[in-house]
Amino acid sequence: MTLEDKQQEIIDDFAIYDDWMDKYEYIIELGKELPIISDENKTDDKLIEGCQSRVWLNTAVEDGKMSFTADSDAIITKGIIGLLIRVLNGETAKDVATTDLRFIQEIGLHEHLSPTRSNGLASMVKKMKLSAIAAS
């Protein structure tokens, strides 16, 4: 599945919900399912301190493909991380660095990626992209 296919799949998944609470129910379930990253990867150097919630991001590159694991103390933040990881994991550094994460806008969750939201997600995406640029 291409990166674009994965984005479209999420957009289609969300299309069935016309109520905000249903969308969030889905995100919360994703957050609960996302494996918690191991404690050795939950160190201060991997911490992105948001004003509202905190995010830990661990980045690895294998055979030119990016691999991210992440966690947050807030479950909604964690659910959105789950979506981002689903789209970006296993993709080439170049694709991660250059792709437009349009699915976030399309499913109406772009507010969570706004720097003013202060939940650590905007900084997390920036870090993901910077690590991809460094690896490409």
Binding site: M21, I28, Q52, S53, A74, I76, S118
Partner: peptide, 19 residues
């Protein structure tokens, strides 16, 4: 987490502060 509760309350039209 207060952020989660605040986010869901917002979607129900309720403005509270979290943090």
């Amino acid at each position: 987490h207060p952020f989660d509760l605040g986010t869901l309350l917002d979607k129900q039209g309720i403005a509270v502060r979290t943090g």
